[in-house]
Nucleic acid binder design. Structure first.
Lengths: 200, 200
DNA sequence: CTAGTAATATGTCAACTGTATTGGAACAAG
DNA sequence: CTTGTTCCAATACAGTTGACATATTACTAG
């Protein structure tokens, strides 16, 4: 066996270079060559790890989902045990908003990915599945919170889940400096306060 | 004076061709040449009306704002006189969601524009101003509704405005077929029902 | 030491990009 | 008609793109 390299690690390095480009210059500048330059390797090396640009985008997006989940898990770990569902939802939502550098990078990558997914069946199916999965997680928390009496039994779990996810709509307002990050957090907290019957 | 052509009309024709491309194939395919082809003219003609691609994008986006405003005005005209603020907000919000062909075209164009605006100072300033203006309109309606007793006086106008705009976050859920358009409307109505103290 | 293969670099290719330039057709005012 | 300007088509240009092919390097198992 010849020279061995951690394939996964190399792909993640490339993916992070792609993130930086998407964040700083937009996905239009995220060509195979530019990504290679950003990663400090030749474009042939990038092709060695990703047969096509699309494969690279797909991996980078899967990596976004992973890293966001990790950040959420980290945030939840800092909560009490058992954590209050209100706080769990708050962590999930705030980590999806571009409120700190890591979140901004993944947020912009997600936005670019969704836009591409509208015109690419493969990406569409993947984005759909990922988003549906995330939505299911939220709905599960909402249902449990209703069962546990944290949320009124008159609330419809599906609708409440959709309204929670709707809070990601704050993203463009934050990114374009229409509102301050603090105002975004106020909105999130206000929404959660009205959803939960008990104040954590 | 030589041959005269309705400059404005020609530009709108080109802008609509750009919309179609952005909607159907994504902004990446909206090159000057492709737009010209879609519009059925030479790319030299496009250059005659727009010195640069950016100028074309800016005009197309301004046109999006105009047309969206017109659709909203049309929807409001069909309401009672004076229209209930709840219904006005409902028209504004639903016309910003991709729930029918025209709205989907302008919605996708807006999304692409915002993404570009993150890395272009000129577009950023324009997108910011446009969004701020729209936000101000909503806030004005909210303030008036509070003054008129349609919304509880305990509500903070700024936060309520932000939460209303947040409903545009339903867009990716609709576009990626995570939820049905009907569910989106249910969410909008649920939100409005909770905002207004009187049921229109 | 020697294959043999993974890792990486470099080169080629046709296609496409935005912009600039040129030339002429259409047309209105003098 | 002549002049001047708008309209617009055609072409040139320099640069970038993704994909593919080739070349070189580095390392390891036998």
């Amino acid at each position: 066996m010849p020279k061995q390299v951690d394939h996964r690690e190399r792909r993640e390095t490339i993916a992070r270079a792609l993130w930086r480009l998407v964040e700083q210059r937009g996905i239009a500048h995220a060509s195979v060559r530019e990504v290679a330059r950003e990663a400090g390797i030749s474009h042939g090396a990038v092709q060695h790890y990703f047969a096509t640009r699309e494969e690279m985008l797909v991996f980078a997006m899967d990596f976004v989902s992973e890293q966001t989940s990790l950040r959420v898990a980290e945030g939840v770990r800092e909560l009490g045990d058992p954590p209050h569902p209100r706080d769990v939802l708050r962590v999930m939502l705030t980590e999806m908003l571009p409120l700190h550098p890591d979140a901004r990078a993944t947020s912009r990558m997600s936005a670019a990915y969704v836009l591409e997914a509208l015109h690419n069946a493969n990406l569409h199916a993947r984005a759909r599945d990922g988003l549906t999965h995330g939505r299911d997680l939220v709905e599960q928390i909402v249902r449990q919170a209703i069962a546990d009496g944290h949320i009124g039994p008159d609330r419809d779990p599906a609708t409440e889940t959709n309204l929670l996810l709707t809070l990601t709509g704050l993203t463009p307002l934050i990114e374009l400096d229409v509102i301050e990050p603090q105002e975004a957090l106020t909105s999130v907290d206000q929404h959660l306060d009205r959803l939960f019957t008990d104040k954590a």
